[in-house]
Design a protein around this nucleic acid. Structure first.
Length: 717
DNA sequence: AAAAAAT
C-alpha cells in the first residue's frame, strides 16, 4: 500500500501541473482546483493560471508543430494535397473516386487495384467533404491550424490571445464534415439496443479512493465540445464501462479495465482524455530538435494490436475532436508511410498507432513521445499474444515518454493474464482495476448453436444457412456478371460473418460462395491493407453482406448489425471462439452464432460445453456425450503450465461474473465466484501470485491450448 | 502447423 490518502487528494489540478506546468503549487488537496466545477463561467485551468504558464525563453509554444516554421517543402506538399482534392480528377482523389465506381472493386474488395492508396483514403476520411467534392478543402480546423502556426512562428508567446490558447471552445461548424462524421450515428447505435440488458452487466472496481461512478453524461463536467459531440454521436446514455471509466480517468487515475470492445470502451477513454486535453490547451514544447522537421509530439498515444482496430479508434476520435483544435492522427503498417508522415505534419495531438509503425516513425525522428501525458494500451492482452511486448516496452520505456506516474496510463485488456499483470506493475501507478462483464459474447444476447457437420458437408450446409437468411443474390443467368452484383441492394441488416481457420480456406470459400452468386468478400492477413479496408467497408455497408474471414477479424472489430457469426471452422481454443462470436450481439443487440462441429474439434469440446452451460445455451445431447467421453479418457484439466492465463483468470471468470451480478462495489475477495475473482486479484497487493482458486488443481482453466485426450487439434495433430 | 505486425 504505497499510497496514503493525501496522495489521492490531488484531482485535476495535478494533471495540469503534470502537463508541463512544473514548479507551480496547487492549492491544496481538493481545494478550489477541481477543474472549475465550482460554478460561474467555466474557465479552463490553463487560462485561470496563466501567470504560471509563461514558458522559459528557450521554449516556444507549439500546439501543432514543434519546428514551428514550416519550410518550403512542406508547404509544397500541402498545396499539392489541396489541389488533388479540389480537382477531383487527378491525383489520388481521382483514384479514390474510381475505386468506388469500379464494380469489381466495389464488391470484391478491389483486389486488382494494387497501388497503395492509403493517402487517398486518408484524405477522404479525414477532411471528408471538406475537399474532394465541393472544391477547396476549407476545413475550419485547417484554417485554425494555420492561424496557430502563425502565432507560433513569431515565437512571441505573449502575443497569442486567450482565444487561441483556449482549446475548450468549439470552432465553427462544418456541416459537410459533420454529416460525414455523424450521419451513421443515429441509425446504427440506437436500433434495437437493449439497454435493460446493459444495466444488468456487472461491473466492479477495485483500488484505493475510487471516484463515484456516473449514471449520465450530465453527471460530469465536460467541455462544450465534448458534450456536443457526444450528443451528435447519439451517445445518450453511458455504457457500463463508461459510467466507471469516465470519472476514473477524469480524476487522473491510472486504470486497468478488463472490457470488450463492444462495451463502449473506445469512447470510455477517448472522451475523458480529449476532454482533459481541451481543458488543458496547448502544451509548450521545447524545440530540442531543430533539425527534425515536422517532428510531432502527441499529447496522447493509443496503441492497438491491429490496423483495423487502430483505424476504428481513429474514426471514433474524429467524432470527439470535431470542432476542436486538437487533431487526431493514425499510423499503421501496410500503408504509405510518407502519406502518414505528411498527414502528421499537419499536427498531431492524439496519435493512434500499431506498435511496429510507430517504432518506425520514432526511428525516423518524426514522432517524439516526450509530451505524452495519456497512454492507452487497447486490447493489451492481444498485443502481448502477438509478441508486441518488446516493441511496446521500447516505445513506453526507451523513448523519452514521461515515466509511470507522470503520465496517465490506461490499459484495456480483455483478460488479465500474468503478462498483463507484469506490464501493469511496470506501467501503472496506483491504478484502479475495473472489471466489466461481457456485453455480448457469452451472455444471453447471443444465441449459440452447435451443429455437427462433417468436413465434406460444410459447404452445402453453409449454403443452406445463407439461403435461409434470404439474401439477395444473383440468378444463375448472370452470376458471372460482376456488374450485376453491384446492382444488388445493400443488405446491411443481415450481415453474416463466416470464420475459417486458414487464409487458403478463406480464399477458397469466398470463391465458392461467389460462384454461387452470393455477394461475398473476404479478409485475411495476406491481403494488402487496401484490400482489407475495402472488404470491411463493403461488408459494413451491406454491399457484400457475407464476409469470409480468418482470425484477423476475430477481435476488436466493431461492426454493427452482424446478425450471424458462422464458425465454418471452429477455432482450436475457446478464447478465440469467444472473441469470434462476440462480433455479433454488439452493444446489447441480439445475435446468432452457429458453429460447425466435427471430429476435428474434439479438443475444445469441454471448454465449449462449459461455456454453453454457463451462458445458458442449449446444449446438444451429442455434444454432451462427446464431452463426457473425452472426460473419461482423461483430460487436460488440472494440468499446470498454461501460458496465457497462468495464475490469473481466463474468460471463465467473466462468464461467472456475468451470472453472479456482483455488486458494483469494491471489496475483499468473496469466495464462490462472481467478481471476487477480479476483486480478489487485488492488483495492488498481489501482482505475481495466483489468486487462489484458479491457479491450479482441478480448477485450473489455464490450459486452453492443450488438446483433449481423444481428439486432435484443428490441424490434425 | 495459423494468424497478426514495420519493410
Amino acid at each position: 500500500m504505497s499510497n496514503v490518502p493525501a496522495h489521492n487528494g490531488v484531482g485535476l489540478e495535478q494533471q495540469f501541473a503534470g502537463l508541463g506546468l512544473e514548479g507551480r503549487d496547487h492549492t491544496g488537496p481538493r481545494g478550489g482546483g477541481r477543474g472549475g466545477r465550482g460554478g460561474g463561467r467555466y474557465i479552463p485551468p490553463h487560462l485561470r493560471n496563466r501567470l504560471d504558464e509563461c514558458p522559459p525563453d528557450n521554449e516556444e509554444i507549439s500546439s501543432l508543430n514543434v519546428s514551428g516554421r514550416r519550410n518550403g517543402d512542406v508547404q509544397t506538399n500541402t498545396f499539392q494535397r489541396r489541389d488533388n482534392r479540389g480537382g477531383g480528377a487527378g491525383g489520388y482523389r481521382g483514384n479514390d473516386g474510381n475505386r468506388f465506381r469500379e464494380p469489381d472493386d466495389r464488391w470484391r474488395g478491389g483486389r486488382d487495384n494494387r497501388s497503395d492508396n492509403r493517402g487517398a483514403y486518408d484524405d477522404r476520411s479525414r477532411d471528408g467533404g471538406g475537399g474532394g467534392i465541393n472544391g477547396p478543402p476549407r476545413n475550419n480546423r485547417w484554417v485554425e491550424d494555420e492561424r496557430d502556426r502563425s502565432g507560433v512562428s513569431g515565437s512571441r508567446w505573449q502575443e497569442r490571445s486567450n482565444q487561441q490558447d483556449d482549446w475548450s471552445q468549439p470552432l465553427a461548424r462544418n456541416e459537410v464534415l459533420e454529416a460525414e462524421l455523424f450521419s451513421n450515428s443515429g441509425t446504427v447505435s440506437n436500433s434495437g439496443i437493449n439497454f435493460d440488458k446493459y444495466d444488468d452487466i456487472p461491473v466492479e472496481a477495485t483500488g484505493e479512493d475510487i471516484p463515484a461512478s456516473i449514471s449520465s453524461f450530465a453527471d460530469i463536467k465536460l467541455t462544450e465540445i465534448i458534450r456536443q459531440n457526444i450528443s451528435m454521436a447519439r451517445y445518450d446514455r453511458p455504457t457500463p464501462v463508461q459510467k466507471y471509466a469516465l470519472p476514473f480517468i477524469l480524476s487522473k487515475r491510472d486504470l486497468m479495465a478488463c472490457a470488450q470492445t463492444g462495451s463502449g470502451k473506445t469512447a470510455a477513454f477517448l472522451v475523458p482524455i480529449l476532454n482533459q486535453i481541451y481543458e488543458q490547451g496547448p502544451v509548450q514544447v521545447k524545440n530540442n530538435n531543430p533539425r527534425g522537421r515536422n517532428k510531432q509530439y502527441p499529447l496522447a498515444l493509443v496503441l492497438a494490436p491491429t490496423r483495423e482496430l487502430a483505424t476504428q479508434i481513429y474514426d471514433e476520435s474524429r467524432k470527439f475532436s470535431y470542432r476542436a483544435k486538437v487533431r487526431p492522427c493514425v499510423v499503421y503498417g501496410g500503408a504509405d508511410v510518407v502519406a502518414q508522415m505528411r498527414d502528421q505534419s499537419r499536427g498531431c495531438h492524439l496519435l493512434v498507432a500499431t506498435p511496429g509503425r510507430l517504432a518506425d516513425m520514432i526511428d525516423r525522428g518524426k514522432v517524439g513521445l516526450d509530451y505524452v501525458k495519456f497512454l492507452v494500451l487497447d486490447e493489451a492482452d492481444r498485443m502481448l499474444d502477438m509478441g508486441f511486448e518488446p516493441q511496446i516496452r521500447r516505445i513506453v520505456e526507451e523513448d523519452n515518454m514521461p515515466p509511470t506516474g507522470r503520465r496517465q496510463t490506461l490499459m484495456f485488456p480483455a483478460t488479465f493474464p500474468k503478462e498483463i499483470q507484469r506490464l501493469a506493475q511496470d506501467f501503472l501507478d496506483n491504478y484502479i482495476f475495473l472489471a466489466v462483464g461481457r456485453v455480448g459474447s457469452t451472455s444471453e444476447n447471443i444465441t449459440q448453436k452447435i451443429v455437427w457437420v462433417a468436413e465434406d458437408d460444410k459447404r452445402s450446409f453453409l449454403l443452406d444457412i445463407l439461403n435461409a437468411a434470404g439474401l439477395d443474390r444473383l440468378s444463375n443467368a448472370n452470376k458471372d456478371d460482376k456488374l450485376a452484383i453491384v446492382a444488388l441492394p445493400p443488405q446491411e441488416e443481415s450481415l453474416t460473418l463466416v470464420f475459417v481457420e486458414t487464409k487458403k480456406g478463406a480464399d477458397a470459400l469466398e470463391e465458392f460462395l461467389y460462384r454461387h452468386g452470393y455477394p461475398v468478400t473476404s479478409i485475411h492477413g495476406d491481403r494488402s491493407q487496401r484490400e482489407r479496408e475495402d472488404a470491411l467497408r463493403v461488408f459494413r455497408s451491406g454491399q457484400c453482406p457475407v464476409l469470409v474471414a480468418t482470425a484477423v477479424a476475430a477481435r476488436g472489430l466493431d461492426i454493427p448489425h452482424v446478425k450471424h457469426v458462422i464458425n465454418f471452422d471452429l477455432p482450436s481454443d475457446i478464447e478465440e471462439y469467444v472473441h469470434r462470436i462476440g462480433r455479433t450481439g454488439r452493444m446489447g443487440n441480439l445475435g446468432l452464432a452457429t458453429s460447425f462441429f466435427n471430429d476435428k474439434n474434439r479438443n475444445m469440446v469441454r471448454d465449449l460445453v462449459e461455456l454453453l452451460q454457463e451462458a445458458q445455451q442449449e446444449l446438444p445431447k451429442w455434444l454432451e456425450a462427446i464431452a463426457s467421453e473425452s472426460r473419461w479418457g482423461g483430460g487436460t484439466r488440472g494440468r499446470t503450465g498454461g501460458k496465457r492465463f497462468g495464475g490469473g483468470f481466463g474468460s471463465r471468470d467473466y462468464r461467472q461474473a456475468d451470472r453472479s451480478k456482483a455488486s458494483h462495489t469494491t471489496g475483499p475477495a468473496r469466495p464462490g465466484g462472481g467478481f471476487s475473482n477480479f476483486g480478489g486479484a487485488a492488483p495492488h497487493f498481489n501482482h505475481y501470485g495466483g489468486y487462489g482458486g484458479f491457479s491450479g488443481g482441478n480448477s485450473g482453466y489455464n490450459n486452453y491450448n492443450a488438446s483433449g485426450a481423444s481428439g486432435t487439434d484443428w490441424w490434425g495433430n
